[in-house]
């Protein structure tokens, strides 16, 4: 029973990490219709930014995460118009062009990280590193709990932004129909750039947490890109709400299978779950995807 409780808690906390990773990715897909291969790259760069902040300036990742969010939001806002330009180009298959473009960005990020930070894995220490408390028979790691809390905050923040602000209305309008939103006076290009900025900010912040929980190196991006795809497809591409459920489901599946069947079968069961969901509900777990 103790092991089951621990497994359930682990699963929920892993789910929190997956949510952090994917929520911005979904928003970008919904608005820009871009499958961003660079998602893992933003996670990696966020982790390295926290590493530098910690090593060079002695700033704890739970403080630097706010600076990282601001910095990467600015970078994303600057890059957004370029992504928009590629995605809306009049040349053949702009969707594939955008895919290739983000893949190129990812390759540059990976090469740049290898050049800047070398091949070593970097751990990012925090005051919460290794800290935990006992809840009956269950050990609750504070770092993961914080990541889970941050995922909930992000979800709530995005919900408020999308459904309680005029900007959110414009974002939803662009997501529904870009041309019609433009005819209604929405500056589609600017909204798209802001959305891309929010996405890079959130994803880099997730990278700060992931680097603190695990470690960061130039190759981690590939892994996180894959995870983001898993969760996004399970949630239904473009569905932000679905991410909250899909992240938790995948986290629980991974933890329970890892504990009771064996970790080597985790990915097999995750893929099987994905396959079944796509078979039964191609629009994702909440049937709200594209």
């Amino acid at each position: 029973m103790d092991v089951l409780l621990q497994a359930l808690l682990n699963g929920i906390l892993i789910g929190g990490i997956l949510i952090c990773l994917t929520v911005g990715f979904q928003l970008t897909f919904g608005v820009l219709h871009v499958i961003d291969f660079a998602v893992g790259g933003w996670v990696m760069l966020g982790g390295y930014a926290a590493y530098w902040a910690s090593r060079l300036l002695g700033i704890d990742p739970f403080i630097s995460v706010f600076f990282v969010f601001a910095l990467f939001t600015l970078i994303g806002c600057a890059l957004g118009p370029l992504i928009y330009h590629v995605r809306t180009s009049r040349y053949a298959r702009p969707d594939l062009m955008a895919l290739a473009f983000t893949f190129g960005i990812f390759i540059m990020m990976r090469g740049g990280a290898l050049w800047l930070w070398s091949f070593d894995s970097r751990s990012v220490g925090s005051v919460l590193s290794g800290a935990s408390f006992s809840l009956g028979p269950v050990t609750v790691p504070l770092l993961r709990l914080s990541a889970f809390g941050m995922a909930l905050l992000l979800g709530l923040g995005l919900f408020v932004l999308l459904y309680r602000t005029r900007f959110g209305l414009a974002v939803r309008a662009v997501a529904q129909n870009r041309d019609h939103a433009g005819l209604m006076g929405v500056d589609v290009k600017r909204v798209s750039a802001y959305v891309y900025g929010i996405y890079t900010g959130i994803t880099a912040s997730a990278g700060v947490l992931l680097a603190t929980i695990y470690s960061v190196n130039p190759e981690v991006g590939v892994r996180y890109t894959l995870f983001a795809f898993f969760v996004a497809v399970l949630a239904g591409l473009g569905s932000v709400g679905g991410v909250l459920v899909a992240g938790l489901v995948l986290g629980l599946v991974e933890s329970l299978v890892g504990t009771y069947v064996g970790t080597r079968y985790s990915l097999l069961v995750v893929f099987a779950t994905l396959y079944l969901v796509l078979l039964i509900s191609p629009k994702g777990i909440l049937q709200r995807g594209i």
Binding site: V3, A7, R223, S255, T259, T263, L267
Partner: peptide, 19 residues
């Protein structure tokens, strides 16, 4: 005795070892 993939989350493994 357990083998796991290189990119696995280690929480379930460590939980079992702890148990």
């Amino acid at each position: 005795f357990e083998l796991f993939p290189a990119n696995a989350d280690l929480t379930p493994i460590v939980s079992n070892l702890k148990s």
